[in-house]
Each structure stands twice: as structure tokens, then as C-alpha cells.
Write a protein that binds this DNA or RNA. Structure first.
Length: 112
DNA sequence: CCAATGACTAATC
DNA sequence: CGATTAGCCATTG
């Protein structure tokens, strides 16, 4: 029977689609996603949408960190601890709650 | 429709 | 570095 449940609002789906583009071992920021979607000021809205990603960690919302290189939050699994564990598992080094070589790890969506 | 709510950010102290 | 403030925006009740 064809009642596929569709998740989220159109905006949320765009955000989750953006997440899927982030390669393993790379990270991005909430602001970068907002900019990629053409709404650079919708940073908070992006944060909320990412936080409601129902496909974690299949859809890598754990690869989104704060603009200053700190981890930020996470609601799936055991919270931030899980986020850190997933990132380290993908080769992203973290020290004192911050991404090591943050800018080098940053993924740029469309050569922004 | 209005008010409140965030996995944010930048500036200021 | 921590605390506070203000700005911003989609989403929710």
C-alpha cells in the first residue's frame, strides 16, 4: 500500500539532503549549510532542522559543528559523547572539545 | 496570527 | 575563557 511517510518540512529535507553530501572525515558548520541553501541568516533554523534529523547517524548530522570549531550539540545516542565518538571513528581528531585543524577538515559544498 | 523555542553566531564585557 | 546580549529564522502550539 502506498502510504509512504514523508518526514519533515521542505526546509528540513533540504537540510538533511545537504548533510548527505558531507564526506566521511570532513565536517561543516550550521552557517555553511544555511549559506548553501541560499539563506545565510537561517543559522538557527538550520540548527533546529539538523537536530530533528530522524535518520541519524545514517544521515551524518554528527559532521556539523559550530563556527568556532567546537563540537556543538547532539541529541541522538548518548548525546555529545556519541557525536565525538562518531567523528573520531571517521578520522576527525578532537581535543578539548574542539576539532583539530578545523579549517582543513571543513567541507565546502559548492566551492563557496 | 502571535509567542515561544532551539544541535547558532558574532559582538561585547 | 566564561557570561551576556542581540540578531535571525523555520517551526510549533
Amino acid at each position: 500500500m502506498g502510504n509512504n511517510k514523508e518526514y519533515g518540512t521542505p526546509f528540513q529535507r533540504e537540510v538533511w539532503e545537504a548533510l548527505r553530501r558531507i564526506p566521511k572525515g570532513s565536517i561543516t558548520t550550521y552557517g555553511a549549510i544555511a549559506k548553501y541553501l541560499g539563506q545565510p541568516r537561517a543559522v538557527r533554523a538550520v540548527g533546529t532542522a539538523v537536530g530533528r534529523n530522524p535518520f541519524a547517524p545514517e544521515v551524518p548530522c554528527h559532521r556539523v559543528v559550530r563556527a568556532d570549531g567546537t563540537i556543538g550539540n547532539y541529541s541522538a545516542g548518548n548525546g555529545v559523547a556519541t557525536k565525538i565518538a562518531l567523528l573520531e571513528k571517521e578520522g576527525v581528531e578532537i581535543s578539548d572539545g574542539k576539532i583539530i585543524e578545523f579549517e582543513k577538515r571543513l567541507y565546502r559544498f559548492e566551492d563557496q
